[in-house]
């Protein structure tokens, strides 16, 4: 496979984790501008675990996911009373504070004659897991796609269980949800925590793939991109955010003659698209309708 294609595909896969984590928050009716922070925390933790502590990649990624989840849970607990714009802005502030923490995190060690570890604004270089394990770009793509597929399977089984419908109900109409005996706070906290885990895991993969990470990578623009992908793709199914990622990175970035005008086209396209499909391309209604059609045909 072409190296360029493989690295574009890998990037899409990694950003898909971020878009899915934004999706999970949107499902419970909130908007987060802060998912990039959990992505960044996951990246730093996985990098530290594999490069500094020499942990196996599995434990490294798991630690990244747990780190992202704990930060998200902390945010969820602190903002337990907030919703709407108030919640959205507090996620932004929280994310910037976490990034500031990373900017000042210095813990370098010498391993095999190389200085590694987080070094303030310089970031964390020499995450050599990929080289040490002789991974080619295509091998890594395979690894990332496998992880994404596992995540999608988990999300789809969630989608088939009443949990996801309950979460959507909490997001759309908390009063109705309460009248059905659903505890909105519990749903919100669990989904925010889960979103942190997904973002942290994706961040871990991102660190391993990039081999160098720095706080500037995890700015608010990254998070808003993830959010936009989820909204454009639609909140009907976990496929939605992936479609959003594909539309932007896959379709537009790969058409090279357009590259300079990519954002002019994409920005206008998205705003225009939302006029006609305000709930995104794969809207909940569309999914619900497709599901019942499918069932009718096969029962």
């Amino acid at each position: 496979m072409d190296m360029y294609l493989a690295s574009v595909l890998t990037n899409m896969t990694l950003i898909a984790f971020l878009a899915l984590s934004a999706y999970l928050v949107l499902v419970v009716g909130e908007v987060s501008f802060g998912q990039q922070a959990f992505f960044g925390i996951g990246a730093y933790i996985t990098a530290s675990a594999t490069a500094l502590a020499g942990a196996h990649i599995f434990w490294g990624l798991l630690a990244g996911a747990i780190g992202g989840a704990s930060c998200a849970l902390l945010l969820g607990l602190l903002t337990i009373r907030l919703s709407g714009i108030y919640f959205a802005i507090s996620t932004l502030c929280f994310a910037e504070l976490l990034r500031f923490f990373l900017l000042h995190l210095r813990f370098t060690q010498s391993v095999d004659g190389r200085i590694i570890g987080p070094d303030g604004p310089e970031g964390f270089s020499n995450i050599r897991w990929i080289f040490e394990n002789h991974y080619q770009v295509t091998d890594f793509l395979l690894l990332a796609v496998t992880c994404l597929i596992i995540l999608l399977i988990v999300l789809f089984s969630l989608e088939r269980s009443p949990i996801m419908l309950g979460a959507r109900m909490v997001g759309n109409d908390p009063i109705l949800a309460q009248s059905q005996g659903l505890n909105p706070t519990r749903y919100r906290l669990s989904f925010i925590t889960l979103s942190g885990a997904v973002a942290g895991f994706g961040g871990g993969l991102f660190a391993l793939f990039n081999t160098h990470i720095e706080p500037a990578m995890f700015g608010v623009m990254l998070g808003i991109h993830g959010l936009a992908y989820a909204v454009i793709g639609g909140l009907g199914s976990a496929v939605g955010p992936l479609l959003g990622v594909f539309l932007d990175i896959g379709l537009l970035e790969s058409i090279r003659p357009l590259a300079a005008y990519r954002m002019i086209i994409f920005g206008g396209l998205v705003a225009f698209l939302l006029v006609f499909r305000p709930e995104g391309i794969i809207s909940p209604r569309l999914v619900s309708r497709l599901k019942s059609r499918w069932r009718n045909r096969h029962v």
Binding site: L26, V31, G84, I85, I224, L227, A228, V231, I232, Y261, R262, M263, I264, F266, G267, G268, L269, V270, A271, L274, V275, P278, E279
Partner: peptide
């Protein structure tokens, strides 16, 4: 971004649409 989403539930959609136009104007 805002006129088409004036209904009560349009807040998030309008915000994301305005983000898209942000990218456009930036470019």
């Amino acid at each position: 971004c805002f006129a088409p989403h004036s209904k009560r539930h349009g807040a998030v959609t309008a915000m994301v649409a305005s983000f898209a136009v942000w990218m456009q104007l930036d470019e």
